[in-house]
């Protein structure tokens, strides 16, 4: 019994470490971009330790760096993080958490740990192990990557000369890319970009990205009976 469950756990653990290493590389670019956007190394590391959800972190520093102000930056990060709540709702029955494990698991609830847990839903034990192994591996390596990236960027010079300002949209694009799975996704992406560009000359910085959320609300309302 023990042997067979070990046999199932080991490949899950090694993919969890693989995912952690890949995410650590994102963390490296997050650290560098955050410092290039004007945050200190400690502020950058605090985001990775406490916020721990990549798209929201990139968005927060991106909006702050573009002069969008704290309120727009925070709202953008929250809206992008809303999906994690949905993941938690989905995971709650499988993980069946009590006591201190609940607040710990909450912090580890992100795209990667959720995807791994769902991919191993064949047995409850495997699904739980996939969640914890991936969550912990990504947490540790994302934070390590952030630290190295932030220290590296602090040691370098003017971000525009280095091209780090071009790394910011490229980073968002890489986060968006795997979500562009069908025609609906492409249409929503085109709508979001259009709203943001049209509003850029008309509103203060930070508002255009927030306004693009309306496209998701409208599309979600229209598609509500399809999913």
């Amino acid at each position: 019994m023990t042997r067979s469950s070990d046999g199932r756990r080991r490949p899950i653990t090694s993919s969890a470490i693989g995912i952690g290493l890949a995410t650590g590389a994102y963390g490296l670019s997050f650290g560098a971009i955050s410092v290039a956007s004007g945050l200190t190394t400690i502020q950058t590391q605090t985001l990775s330790l406490l916020m721990f959800t990549g798209a929201s972190q990139f968005a927060l520093v991106g909006v702050l760096g573009a002069g969008g102000g704290a309120i727009a930056a925070v709202l953008t990060a929250w809206l992008l993080g809303a999906r994690n709540g949905l993941y938690a709702l989905h995971l709650a029955p499988t993980l069946n958490l009590h006591g201190f494990r609940k607040p710990v698991a909450a912090q580890l609830t992100i795209d990667e740990s959720t995807a791994m847990s769902i991919a191993h839903e064949t047995t409850v034990a495997a699904s739980r192990h996939a969640f914890w192994a991936t969550g912990i591996s990504v947490y540790v390596l994302w934070n390590l990557g952030t630290l190295l990236g932030a220290l590296g960027a602090s040691a370098l010079g003017d971000p525009a000369v280095l091209g780090l300002d071009a790394a910011i949209p490229a980073g968002f694009l890489a986060l968006l890319w795997p979500r562009l799975r069908d025609r609906t996704a492409w249409a929503i992406a085109a709508g979001g970009a259009t709203v943001a560009l049209v509003l850029t000359p008309l509103t203060r910085s930070g508002v255009p990205v927030l306004a693009s959320a309306l496209i998701a609300v409208l599309a979600g309302y229209r598609l509500r009976d399809r999913t």
Binding site: L176, A196, V209
Partner: peptide, 9 residues
């Protein structure tokens, strides 16, 4: 939300 907002970003 992530699709619309990441694209806007």
């Amino acid at each position: 939300l992530p699709i619309a907002m990441l694209s806007a970003l």
